[in-house]
Amino acid sequence: MRLQAATIFVDDQAHAADFYTRVLGFEVTADVPLGEARWLTVAEPGNPGATNISLEPKGHPAAVAYAAALLEDGIPCCQLGVADLAAEHERLTALGVVFTQPPTDFGPVTVAVLDDTCGNLLQLAQVNAQSEPGADGEPDTSGDASPDTQA
């Protein structure tokens, strides 16, 4: 079993399709009329195994309350992985994207939070190479770095 699709509730599907493709760089993987709404998914381009993001309308009142409450406290609804956060921040800022949190280095990970203009915040995360094992206060036995542990 694997994660096939995860939902992000959006204010407007047409606007979301534009932002998630033209601005963020995803590609549409499904766009099927479904009554008043669409079954609309996007995913990382060129990666058939990528998890789909289902951009669903806020049809249920709970979805409206959920998204608004997260937004007010600045909580992102999901995390997107990037290889070079500084470059993405520069690229997206030039496209007019608003960041509620600029790239912030937390050691093992550097994160930023942006407004998807569809009623959500998204966290971008870049996993940093661990240059010094044990330097982050990891509860380690600290014996693996010693050269003379062989008996």
């Binding site: 406290d73 600045g74 992102p76 912030t104 050691g107």
Partner: peptide, 23 residues
């Protein structure tokens, strides 16, 4: 830095100070 959300403040407390209290 100015203009921090509650989420950012909580993240900073956890990541920079290992302080994990509720939101």
């Amino acid at each position: 830095r100015p203009d921090q959300t509650l989420f950012e403040i909580c993240s900073r407390l956890v990541m920079n100070h290992a302080v994990s209290i509720s939101r």
